[in-house]
Simulated scan of single mutants.
Amino acid sequence: MMSDSLPAFWAVIPAAGIGSRMRADRPKQYLALAGRTILEHTLACFLDHPGLKGVVVSLAEDDPFWPQLSCARDLRIHRAPGGSERADSVFNALLRLVELGAGEDDWVLVHDAARPNLARSDLDNLLAVLADDPVGGLLAVPARDTLKRAGPDGRVRETVDRSVIWQAYTPQMFRLAPLQHALADARVAGVAVTDEASAMEWAGLAPRLVEGRADNLKVTRPEDLQWLAQRWGR
């Protein structure tokens, strides 16, 4: 059962990327991992949560892989058109949420399609910590290693104070209308946003950092997939 302190939410999964660094014959979200695709594992992180109102997956228009998945027929999952950039895919998903009847103040959790190892404890902690937050926030991990700032010649310019540096993860959790406005305004201004938090930051807001587990890994390179396969024993 879901604790009364955890808010209900929608999930948005931008999944229109091609993942060229994986050097595979298909987008990385459709690579096999422990008997299912990465995307199916990612969706499973949310589909069994009692607070879930629904999921919107942003997909490329000519995506031939999605219809082959059994979850494509799940009535809780809705499709939105993917965009050329992540921000476009997320914005299109938010428009779909409005069509589905989502409210302006509804919580939306945006999660990377290739981040299948989200722990339920991290998800519940994010929901609990941000339940009444006026802005929202994101899962993140404090920097653990010494950080260097490099110059154009590839040599160290300075050592960065790691105590104030966090690595941004997902889900990133914001209310529907403020996130939609931030993404729209950034697009009009020609501002490139790399994640939802950066859009909210550009809008003058300060998202809250919620510490999560470092193994909430985003599959970017072949060795990431190998690491997860070994961890899951497959």
Rank of each mutant, 00 (worst) to 15 (best):
W107D: 00
W107Q: 03
W107G: 01
L109C: 11
V110N: 05
H111S: 02
A113Y: 04
P116L: 03
N117H: 14
N117W: 06
N117Y: 07
L118P: 03
D122F: 10
D122Q: 05
N125A: 14
N125K: 14
N125D: 15
L126H: 01
L130F: 06
D132A: 14
P134T: 05
G137E: 01
L138R: 09
L138A: 11
A140Q: 01
A140F: 08
P142R: 03
A143W: 02
A143V: 07
R144H: 11
R144K: 14
D145S: 12
D145L: 07
L147M: 08
R149I: 04
R149E: 11
A150P: 02
G151R: 15
D153R: 07
D153I: 04
R155H: 05
R155Q: 07
V156P: 00
V156R: 04
E158F: 00
R162F: 04
S163E: 07
S163N: 07
V164W: 08
V164D: 09
V164L: 05
I165G: 03
Q172I: 03
M173N: 06
R175G: 08
R175P: 03
R175K: 07
P178Y: 07
Q180W: 12
Q180H: 14
H181G: 08
A184Q: 13
D185Y: 13
D185V: 15
R187K: 15
V188E: 15
V188R: 15
V188P: 10
G190S: 07
G190W: 02
V193Q: 01
T194D: 15
A197I: 05
A199S: 13
A199V: 01
A206C: 14
A206Y: 12
P207C: 10
P207V: 12
R208M: 12
L209M: 15
V210L: 09
V210Q: 01
G212E: 02
R213Y: 11
R213T: 13
A214S: 14
D215Y: 06
N216L: 10
L217V: 10
K218I: 10
K218L: 09
P222I: 06
Q226Y: 13
